[in-house]
Design a protein around this nucleic acid. Structure first.
Length: 274
DNA sequence: CGTATTTGACCGGCGC
DNA sequence: GCGCCGGTCAAATACG
């Protein structure tokens, strides 16, 4: 709103032609509209995050109170292990520790939806870490092959990831991370540069730590260059008005993008399922 | 030549 | 016990 008045002031001083004036007022209207939309979406996201955090903490409480009540496919194995060791009653401390470690790694599973360009057919998700591919498989539920990666620091770093194209939107890559890195990122540069421009839509962590389960949406703004080329107007880009305009336009573009909406919906429904 | 990727073989868990 | 399926291994191949 502040930028609005600023724009109007400069408009009067310059006594611009009416066509230019119309263009400006249209842009200001658009700016106001996307500001409102952005505000609304931010509020919605805050509500969703709040609900998720509440549900997640309740789920964790419930799991602690009722171990073994989890009926997901992933936990069936664990359940069998618990039952098996219970009936035998002879598992050593070493085995128990190993199982606990494995469980801890399995608990730190997070899913990340990554929007790629339509022309990008690879299964590479640049996340700042270095990965070594060790397998690829076509699964039953999805005709797109699933790629298996291990962290390059393995076996020191036990983290694995699976990358597969989304069944609903094949331009969206679904990366499933297993475990936590015990070393810093190899290159942060890889996350923001390179031939691919990614929009990391959402991470859906399900670790036991609440602090790490806070929802995050990371936008790679390099993508916007295609729509809003500012390379020839470097004198304008430093003004707060223009920067806000850019931010608003980026937000507007994302909210209008149907694939963004579908991926966001998938991420939110994923959170609720968990 | 060393390293990364590909791809068919193999293994273990699970349901019937 | 058998077959299916997802995950992993490791030899072959590609690449710089």
């Amino acid at each position: 709103m502040e930028s609005n008045s600023l724009l109007n002031t400069s408009l009067d001083l310059n006594a611009a032609p009416s066509r230019f004036q119309d263009e400006r007022s249209a842009l200001v209207d658009e700016l106001n509209r996307v500001s409102a939309e952005n505000k609304r979406l931010t509020e919605m996201l805050a509500v969703v995050s709040e609900n998720y955090n509440g549900l997640h903490s309740k789920l964790m409480e419930y799991k602690i109170k009722n171990p073994g009540m989890d009926n997901t496919a992933a936990s069936r194995k664990r359940k069998a292990e618990i039952n098996g060791s219970g009936s035998e009653g002879s598992s050593s401390d070493e085995e128990t520790c190993k199982k606990l470690r494995e469980e801890h790694i399995k608990a730190n599973i997070s899913r990340v939806f990554v929007k790629t360009q339509a022309s990008d057919t690879g299964l590479i998700v640049k996340d700042g870490y270095q990965w070594r591919k060790y397998g690829q498989k076509v699964t039953r539920d999805n005709p797109c092959p699933r790629a298996y990666f291990k962290c390059s620091f393995a076996p020191t770093c036990p983290v694995k990831k699976r990358v597969q194209r989304s069944l609903e939107d094949q331009s969206v890559l679904v990366a499933t991370y297993e475990g936590e890195h015990n070393h810093p990122q190899v290159s942060k540069l890889e996350m923001t540069s390179g031939s691919n421009r990614y929009v990391t839509l959402s991470s859906v962590p399900c670790s036991n730590s609440l602090s790490s389960s806070a929802p995050s949406i990371t936008l790679d703004l390099t993508r916007q260059k295609t729509s809003y080329d500012v390379s020839n107007s470097s004198s304008k880009v430093n003004t707060p008005e223009f920067q806000q305009f850019l931010v608003e336009q980026m937000a507007s573009t994302l909210t209008k993008d149907p694939s963004f909406k579908s991926a966001l919906a998938a991420a939110i429904s994923g959170k609720f399922r968990q």
